[in-house]
Design a protein around this nucleic acid. Structure first.
Lengths: 227, 227
DNA sequence: GAAACCCTCAAGCAATTTATAAAGAAAATA
DNA sequence: TATTTTCTTTATAAATTGCTTGAGGGTTTC
């Protein structure tokens, strides 16, 4: 299978190397750029499936780079920032960022967000993709889910939530993280909607397999799949 | 709050003093060097957040100093030059200067450029506040605490108590002082609540590092951090 | 040795978070 | 346009965590 190609534009050599190692371990090919100029040049010359772009770059900042990328390309761009404020997020999304990761980040988060962005852009290559967890089988292309062979009828939001959880079964998704991935908009720190969808999803999974508990609440944080 | 440290390499004593005064007034700490050799030596020996470097220096010119700095360091460097030609600017940027200031300069310009360079390099002074004491690291912005690299899960009151103690590690806080700072209300001369919180905090610190003793009781007075 | 002060544990209460049913609103479909 | 489906919000209850207080005992000071 041909590997997807990710460009990492990050001036900190250690962070750049870490990101590269993470992605290579998860089956991607990477190229590294250490300045905005270099990154922009590489982005124009070669074809990438996704770009990881640091916001704080010397000489030309990440947001300027992003603006120039967006003049010619709709390649998914995930911005890496040390700061995490609403204003910055809004600005980034307006500029055309597909997602953002705040430092310090953990490995699972990076992979999850890269996969999410790739999936939304339709560039994921190993389609149709089947995700499995315990008795659950989920087909990302046909949007179908079975539990113990029984077909579940899930709404779009229910499907996306389950798919996200199944992409990284060990990861604890905060409600903010989960909302922003599934809803593709800023989290307004109101968890009523998420709570209801997760409750509905749990009920459907329970009906398919009364013995199974698949979604675990991590109190004060969010949700993960049950081990 | 910890001040950012700027090294000023400028042979003209009056200008060096003026730059120092400007920066000190704006909340920075400064060290002065009057020759390139001296400046290079200081830059290698100590850690600076930014360097102001005069181009015209005796014995060894500023561009040579810059080149040597760049062999080992990516500290932001702003070059001060009496000349202002495109050719010199291009050369300086190629050599790795982050910015340049041309003589004569005004106060606001210096401060603005220093702040700009610091912001681009991620060293800006309004970064999250980190307090350290022995193996404890406390981040006032993200409300996180680590001991020996291990993340502690503290309640809000526990965090506030620790933060207060760490702001002035040598200070003995009376129970009244501590209560009024943390609880933001009048002390009713009942220490049971404080005693329990401090006890719980000690336990959490002890779990993270069984060898450490961080909080000292001053009998009849209150608490301080252990020397 | 007594009094004052402190430590720690456990229990009860308060605050916060979560679960879920039901209702209303919005979106999709026929 | 009407109906159905999906999504969101509200209301209520339950679960969990944080804080305070009391109890019992230990330590320090005079």
């Amino acid at each position: 299978m041909e590997k997807l190609h990710v460009l990492i534009i990050e001036d900190d050599k250690e962070i750049n190397g870490l990101l590269s190692a993470i992605l290579v371990q998860n089956g991607y090919m990477t190229n590294s750029a250490y300045t905005g100029f270099e990154g922009l040049s590489m982005a124009k010359r070669d074809s990438y499936d996704l770009i990881l772009l640091d916001l704080m770059l010397p000489y030309k900042s990440g947001d300027e780079i992003l603006r120039e990328i967006r003049e010619n390309s709709d390649v998914p761009v995930i911005v890496i920032s040390a700061k995490d404020t609403t204003r910055i997020k809004v600005d980034l999304l307006r500029l055309g960022a597909d997602d953002y990761i705040t430092k310090p980040f953990d490995v699972d988060e990076v992979v999850a967000r890269v996969e999410s962005a790739l999936r939304r852009s339709g560039r994921q290559k190993d389609q149709p993709r089947i995700l499995s967890f315990k008795e659950i089988s989920l087909n990302s292309e046909s949007k179908s889910v079975t539990v113990c062979g029984k077909q579940l009828l899930l709404t779009a939001k229910e499907f996306c939530i389950l798919e996200l959880l199944m992409m990284n079964p060990k990861m604890v998704y905060s409600k903010e993280n989960l909302f922003e991935n599934v809803w593709q908009e800023m989290y307004a720190y109101d968890d009523k909607t998420i709570n209801t969808h997760v409750c509905n999803l749990r009920n459907k999974l329970k009906m398919a397999n009364p013995e199974g508990d698949y979604i675990e609440t991590v109190w004060g944080i969010g949700y993960k799949l049950q081990e």
